[in-house]
């Protein structure tokens, strides 16, 4: 019993300590935003890596997410409601949930894990110490550009995912149900609300930031050589995915 309580206490202290460290890293990175212009080449290269290079994967996931949403919605509407509302139902689901969440989960796998692996490798090979010895703060040089790009690029990727998702949904409606485009897109337009799109983008903004912050934190906390880097990669993906889903719930409660 004593050992259980002691283990629980230790885990609680670790959790609080790590959460505090994540916020400290975030705060220190935010302070470097005033040097954003001076660090523009680092920021642009991270925007390219996190954003532009993720476009093919996001489009692939987006088109099939939209297609599945269309199939599932059509199945649920069958016999109860006219297919004329299929576009409205799928587009709202894509804008507020599927677009931001699936984009963020894909990014957690592709980018969050890669940030942790890259910074973790730098940590175990003394490259982070080398940066410090050259009087360069690793938080400004490594963390700030990645966190800023995470916040900015995930909403942009979500816009792509939303668009291609609706195209995927329409493709299914056209192929399976022979629904004309004016009916499908007419209902999308009729029920379109900018608030739905914005709420999805607000979610994506937070998901992107959380993914990048966790990737950086886990990377900086890496130790133990190649094995440690492997563990950090998995840890970053698992933590990012869990935090995306937790934030999704909190933001959904707050926004709707």
């Amino acid at each position: 019993m004593t050992s259980f309580v002691s283990a629980l206490g230790r885990r609680t202290i670790n959790f609080v300590s790590e959460t505090g460290s994540v916020f400290i890293l975030f705060y220190k990175s935010i302070r470097y935003l005033k040097q954003l212009w001076a660090s523009r080449s680092l920021v642009f290269s991270q925007m390219l890596e996190i954003g532009v290079n993720s476009i093919p994967l996001v489009l692939f996931v987006g088109v099939f997410a939209g297609a599945v949403a269309s199939v599932q919605t059509a199945y649920q509407l069958k016999g109860y409601i006219s297919y004329n509302y299929l576009g409205a139902a799928t587009s709202v689901a894509i804008f507020i949930e599927l677009g931001p969440v699936l984009t963020a989960l894909v990014i957690a796998g592709r980018v969050g894990a890669s940030i942790a692996a890259e910074i973790g490798t730098m940590k175990v090979t003394e490259q982070i110490d080398a940066l410090e010895s050259l009087a360069i703060d690793p938080i400004r040089y490594l963390a700030m550009p990645r966190i800023f790009s995470g916040f900015i690029m995930i909403p942009l990727l979500t816009v792509f995912a939303d668009f291609i998702g609706i195209m995927g949904a329409y493709a299914v409606a056209w192929i399976n149900l022979d629904l004309p485009p004016e009916t499908f897109f007419g209902s999308v337009k009729e029920f379109f609300s900018i608030l739905n799109v914005m709420s999805g983008l607000i979610k994506a903004f937070f998901f992107g930031g959380v993914t990048a912050i966790i990737g950086c934190y886990v990377g900086f906390a890496t130790d133990g050589g190649a094995e440690g880097v492997g563990k950090s990669t998995i840890r970053a993906f698992v933590l990012s995915s869990a935090m995306i889903l937790l934030n999704d719930y909190i933001l959904s409660v707050l926004l709707f």
Binding site: T125, Q127, A130
Partner: peptide, 15 residues
């Protein structure tokens, strides 16, 4: 630190 140079054991070059 700008007054120092540090040669690391494995050089610690940025890959």
């Amino acid at each position: 630190r700008k007054q120092f140079g540090f040669l690391f054991q494995n050089a610690a070059l940025f890959d």
